[in-house]
Amino acid sequence: MSKKTVYVRLKEGVLDPQGVTINKSLKQMGYDDFISVRFGKFFELEIKDDATDIDRKLNEVCEKLLSNPVIENFTVEK
């Protein structure tokens, strides 16, 4: 069994109200060193030992389900 991690991030320029709010909260807590915060997601996928062509399939599921290409980019950790 191996593991792959997929990161899904909002594209640059897409408003991230959650990130903005988190940063505001940081400032209120006294941490004013951060210019911005972007909120994202990651997925851990356990992969069967006998899986084939897994890179292509990972790309496919990222495009079809894990991310929304209109607003998000994904990267599969090597």
Binding site: V14, L15, P17, Q18, T21, N68, V70, I71
Partner: peptide, 17 residues
């Protein structure tokens, strides 16, 4: 509809959360 690609764009979190 936007997720299915029948309409363009996306609906994201309200700006005030």
């Amino acid at each position: 509809l936007t997720e299915s690609g029948l309409l363009p764009g996306a609906l994201i979190r309200n700006d005030h959360l």
